[in-house]
Design a binder for these strands. Structure first.
Lengths: 330, 330
DNA sequence: ATAATTTATGTAACGGATTACATTGAAAAA
DNA sequence: TTTTTCAATGTAATCCGTTACATAAATTAT
């Protein structure tokens, strides 16, 4: 691999001039051509290790995902990657498995200068740790966030989204609506519950605590919770699950028990993952603009990397209720 | 951020000694403790940009995935990531969208020293280009591969796997078995077709070309192909799809047309993605040891990075037929 | 006790770029 | 013509580690 010095020699100029050509500095047209020819002839590509050291940047964005196999995240990552690439950044993928230790190791990459900033979704880590990191380095929260710390975020209005989902069920005549929620340590879980309750109240329907259950994140967890709900004496006639994965688990249980969706039980999910549309019946859900969220998160982060002082505003993106077969009027 | 020089000053030693402590060089126990204390006090972390430049390595593995949203790949990436981390490598995620231009841009990262090697799955790029890259840099093929070029690969025995899947259908009594294949530009597509034919021949069943269709990669494509198969005068009684995504598309079409799986039509997929088990009915499929494939690919690559000359052997991992509801005896 | 080894540590070169500052030369202004 | 200004280019310092080589100190061997 040739170095800038060899190019300089070949072109009969100094390394400074070559560097200027590379970075669009002030160079006379004649010289520029000379240098460009040398670059082409030697098939030269600048060594980023040298450049990065000198510039003290890595042009890497650390993307911390709790679970890469959860299809919810993949589209966000696509958005992040596209926006990053457009700005000359690459993404360092970090699958945290919601494991604090792994997160810590990855956070160290910032100190080691291997990453210029972080986009985090659903951090398992102590909020105080994240806060400290946020003071020193550019950080952006995506989807799941804490408002207690001064770190900007991209998200949707979960309260309104859950409200709409529940209201949809109410509108088509359901009065007995269960909520399969996640762990309420998550902000989104608390917010979606709030939206669910808000809709019930608007329709003067009392909240039945028996119908509010807390599941994990997995398909199996959705199955289990649905089994529980169907075991109640007073069964719900519809379910709102806070993720499509949970909803798909519910769907499976309902059918396994010989009941029909939507005739016997209506189901609404959340996220609009690809598979929501592949189920039988197809799943009514809330669409989150995931690709766009990724793009905005990356752009926001890059802005902050370029100008640390820059105050960036949180971004709330639009969501959308997508009505499919699982809640056809009954 | 403190530098190695400041640590040296604080510990009252030279930078060389600090570096030796950092790299487990020969240092007297007393001095080592002195340095370690200084490191702790200053909260020092080595700047990897400096180290990488000096060592002329990036400790990054470029992972080229055609489509990050395809759940087939995510588990492989998990394996790659875990193995990489264990060896002190990070992974640079590259979603190629099977786009040659994007691939080229990513391949340039090697020249630029931003990555030490590549793991590629289903390269869209010209096989000759890949061959050239493989001569100069460490490359490993994962899952999809070409044998025409001298680049090691991790894969399964697709012929035998497809043979087993088809034989299973034959064994439970099916005689009219369709194949929903992918584009035969893919090695795996050609191999799986071969296995399918082999099984039919073993059972003395003539190959019916009408029942062999080539689909794309998407769910919708699976739906379309199944629709076509059901429109035939002489319909198949079972389908073997070369991916779960295609099989799930087929499943949907079959049910939309009012037919029952497995009673009316048996379905077998391939890959054993997470969702295969969430369908109704659950999907019979071939399990690929995806996590393990990722691990092996990463380890093989790292071996090659550390010793360019090293001749590594291709690895064929075991697969497994997983029988579920979609092919219960009929 | 002296020589030969071995161990511990330091000095300085090096990896490959960027860029502040200095210098040269040409164009513009006086 | 002389002075001023500015564009073009070069020299060398710098970013932060690693490591070859040199030197000093401590062991071991003789």
């Amino acid at each position: 691999m040739p170095t800038i010095e060899e190019v300089a020699k070949a072109a009969g100029v100094s390394v400074a001039t070559v560097s200027r050509v590379l970075n669009n500095g002030q160079v006379s047209p004649k010289t520029r051509i000379l240098v460009e020819n040398a670059i082409r002839e030697l098939n030269y590509e600048p060594n980023m290790l040298g450049r990065n050291l000198r510039r003290s940047e890595s042009r890497m964005i650390l993307t911390m995902i709790p679970n890469i196999s959860n299809p919810f995240y993949s589209v966000i990552v696509e958005g992040i990657e596209d926006a990053a690439r457009k700005n000359g950044y690459n993404i360092l993928l970090c699958n945290t498995e919601a494991d604090v230790e792994r997160e810590k190791i990855y956070l160290d990459l910032l100190k080691q200068k291997l990453a210029d900033g972080i986009i985090t979704m659903e951090p398992a880590i102590d909020i105080d740790v994240l806060k400290e990191v946020g003071k020193r380095y550019p950080v952006v929260q995506c989807c799941e966030y804490s408002e207690k710390i001064n770190i900007p975020y991209i998200a949707i209005d979960n309260v309104t989204a859950a409200y709409k989902a529940t209201k949809h069920l109410l509108t088509i005549g359901h009065k007995k609506i269960a909520l399969i929620n996640s762990d309420e340590k998550f902000m989104y879980a608390r917010q979606r519950k709030e939206g669910y309750i808000k809709a019930l109240q608007e329709f003067d329907i009392p909240v039945n605590e028996d119908w509010i259950v807390n599941a994990g994140l997995s398909f199996e967890s959705g199955q289990r919770m649905m089994k529980y709900l169907l075991s109640l004496k007073d069964k719900p006639s519809a379910v709102f699950a806070v993720s499509d994965i949970l909803a798909i688990g519910a769907l499976k249980t309902i059918k396994d028990e010989g009941l029909k969706v939507p005739q016997d039980i209506g189901v609404v999910g959340f996220d609009n993952i690809q598979f929501a549309n592949m189920m039988n019946p197809t799943l009514t859900t809330i669409e989150q603009p995931r690709y766009q969220m990724g793009v905005e998160a990356a752009e926001m982060l890059i802005k902050r990397i370029k100008d640390k002082k820059q105050k960036v505003e949180n971004v709330i993106l639009d969501h959308q209720l997508i009505i499919r077969e699982s809640t056809m009027e009954y």
